[in-house]
């Protein structure tokens, strides 16, 4: 340690020791200041920094405005009213703003969709990345990308006309508009994302790992499941988290096929109402500034916090996995 401080030892790059490893804005600043420090360079750096910071600003502003619209609920029915067990925003007797059925509805649909997405997405990604012949990959990839780009309303039509009757007949229900129907549709939307990103992760696993495994006498399939997929796991987890992000925030398709009954249930065959669908369905008709209006903003806050939480867990998992 003492040696590194001695005079004249600035390292191979000739930089001062303190310059190495400084992260964040200073290094960003330096990056753009390279090649001179004329006012043009400085202006460019300031501009780029401003653009890069916009995303932080927008997130903060969204939180701020959501909070501003939601907060006055405290003056009316009170924040505690959100903990009620029923969501009856319009009533001649008593209105209730309990978020529980909406939260459980979203949770049920999201978890079910994730359950379908993970095995399907990973298996398809493995096939496209490792097993498909070149011409098969050329054929599959554009279709997967097209699927990812279909507007959710159109997928909602498909759910309404094809999937819902199918679920209805299959389980002998009176209505096919259930949590299961919504979850299947959402899985359909999340799977292409999961496939695309997982496939990239799997393909970027170094060839040398596979050679090592094959040379030890492992079969191609053993190599795939025991070396390639684990090595790509951080990318696959990121893919799943992104897919879940899309699922939890998706509005149109669930609004169309889940039946929208605000009840607390764990049954996949029951009709549920998600947070997103509630906001989308009710926001257009609610009197501006009413308690109902404020409550809907609370729903938005809960949704936002949930997405944030999901992102944080994803980051944590990723980091933990990379440390290993």
């Amino acid at each position: 340690m003492a040696r590194s401080g001695s005079a004249g030892s600035f390292g191979p790059t000739g930089r001062l020791p303190g310059e190495i490893g400084r992260a964040g804005f200073p290094s960003l600043w330096k990056m753009f200041a390279i090649g001179g420090s004329t006012w043009k360079d400085k202006a460019a750096a300031v501009l780029l920094r401003a653009v890069a910071s916009t995303s932080i600003l927008i997130v903060l502003l969204i939180f701020l405005f959501l909070g501003k619209e939601a907060a006055p609920l405290a003056a009316g029915p009170g924040i505690k009213s959100l903990l009620a067990e029923r969501w009856v925003p319009v009533s001649f007797q008593q209105v209730r703003f309990g978020l529980l059925p909406l939260v459980t509805g979203s949770l049920l649909v999201t978890l079910l969709a994730t359950l379908f997405t993970i095995p399907f997405g990973i298996c398809a990604a493995v096939y496209v990345a490792e097993l498909a012949k070149p011409w098969e990959r050329e054929l599959l990839k554009p279709f997967i990308e097209i699927l990812a780009g279909i507007p959710s309303v159109v997928i909602g039509f498909f759910g309404l006309v094809v999937l819902a009757p199918l679920v209805k007949d299959l389980f002998g229900l009176s209505s096919g508009l259930t949590a299961l129907t919504g979850a299947l549709l959402l899985a359909l939307m999340a799977i292409p994302t999961v496939i695309s990103i997982s496939e990239d992760a799997i393909r970027s696993v170094p060839e040398s790992y596979k050679s090592a495994s094959l040379a030890l006498g492992a079969s191609r399939l053993q190599t795939l499941w025991k070396v390639t997929v684990p090595a790509a796991l951080s990318g696959i987890i990121a893919a799943i988290m992104l897919g879940m992000g899309r699922v939890i925030g998706e509005t149109m398709a669930v609004l169309m096929v889940t039946g929208n009954a605000a009840v607390v249930t764990a049954s996949p065959l029951a009709s549920v109402r998600t947070m997103t669908a509630t906001i989308a369905a009710e926001m257009g008709e609610v009197p501006f500034g009413s308690d109902h209006y404020r409550a809907l903003f609370w729903v938005g806050i809960v949704l936002l916090v949930a997405t944030f939480g999901l992102n944080m867990v994803a980051q944590r998992v990723l980091k933990k996995h990379q440390e290993r």
Binding site: S208, Y209, L216, Q222, K226, A231, R324
Partner: peptide
């Protein structure tokens, strides 16, 4: 079976991104 009898060490060391134990145990496991 052939590759079990004929082991190979590569030019660039290529341990799996697993623990030291898991690297060595990989072959016997499969």
């Amino acid at each position: 079976a052939l590759r079990k009898r004929v082991g190979m060490v590569f030019q660039k060391s290529n341990p799996f991104p697993k623990t030291i134990f898991e690297n060595v145990a990989y072959g016997p496991r499969i």
